Amino acid sequence: MIGPRLTIAAAIVTAVVVTAAAVAGILGLDVSLGLIDPRVQASAPVLDLEAPAVIAAGEPATVVVTSLSATGSLPVVVRAGTTTHRFTVEVEAGLARLELDQTLTGQAGVLDLRAGSLATTIEITPGPVVGDFPVLAGPHTVVANGADHAVAVAIPRDRWGNPAASGTEVVYTWTQPGPGTSTGSSRVDRGIAWVELVSGTKSGWTGISAAAESAVGVEARITEVPGAASQLVMEPVVVVGSEVGDAVELRSGPIADRFGNTIPDGVEGRFGVETARGPHIVPGTVQGGRLRAWWVPVPGAITISAAVNGVSSPPLTMTVVEDQQK
């Protein structure tokens, strides 16, 4: 008869341990082999965990924990991304409060909260957009031909550096040398918004601004440059010396693209010179909207033409006469 009695006694002990474990689990206590961890037992059991579901970045948030005990202390764990913060709050009249400040709520995302066996989350949305947010434009240089494209990208942010929420409208204004002022808009997608621009037909710089909510970004600029030279003529050669062997300046007429934009300084070209001694190539550079170079002529008939960007001028023919009085 001893065997059955021992079996019944063991079953009773097991039932008591299981019941204790279930109660401890409900109260948020840890049980190991029927023994409550004394460190956890010192904490007040948790009945409820409350926090705001959604807040804007940087706003304070109050976490309220309801305890079965009127007094005591409670551990609260807050996880922000990959960082875990541990707090201990004191229970008074069955309630404990934890205030979360901007150091924890400044970054948009989700905060995971845990107290005892209960858990909840706080979603942090981006705050209002602040001014002087970045506006980028590229390429930095386009051809003023009415066909080249550029893209302006806005990156609106709140005061904490969080990108504006997806769907936030961004309004762009850009002023071009030719068409004047134009506007366009787009919406933030994954932190950025962009708009496409088409070049005008007049060279100069284009200023681009962007506004989101009540904030204005930093202005961006692109430069619209002349296209290839459309036509080219030679100006008469001016003899600057009184003797053969003195240098003369070779100079083209004004050089412009097909829309009348003057070709900028620094563009390279060449002069083709034919004399009785044969053809010569004289390198030149655009200065003041004209191709220029210096050359020492020889007596006799010469033919000169200018070429820039693959466009050549009609030839200019002249005769250099040697000074007979030297």
Rank of each mutant, 00 (worst) to 15 (best):
A9H: 11
A11V: 10
I12R: 14
V13C: 11
D30K: 11
P38R: 10
V54Q: 10
P60M: 01
T62F: 08
L68D: 12
A70G: 15
G72Y: 07
T83H: 12
H85V: 00
H85G: 01
R86S: 12
R86H: 10
E90K: 11
L98T: 07
A108I: 03
G109F: 05
V110W: 09
L111M: 06
D112H: 14
L113S: 04
S117H: 14
T125S: 10
P126N: 08
P128W: 07
D132N: 08
P134R: 06
V142N: 04
V142W: 05
A144P: 04
A144E: 00
N145P: 02
A152T: 10
A152N: 13
I155K: 15
E169C: 00
V170D: 12
V170Q: 12
T183S: 15
G184K: 04
V195Y: 14
W205L: 12
E213I: 00
S214R: 11
A215L: 10
V218Q: 13
P226H: 04
E235I: 01
V237L: 09
G253F: 02
D257I: 03
N261I: 07
T262A: 14
E274F: 12
G288R: 15
R290S: 10
L291H: 12
R292W: 03
V296A: 10
P299W: 11
G300K: 03
A307C: 01
S312W: 01
P314W: 01
P315N: 11
T319M: 06
K326I: 06
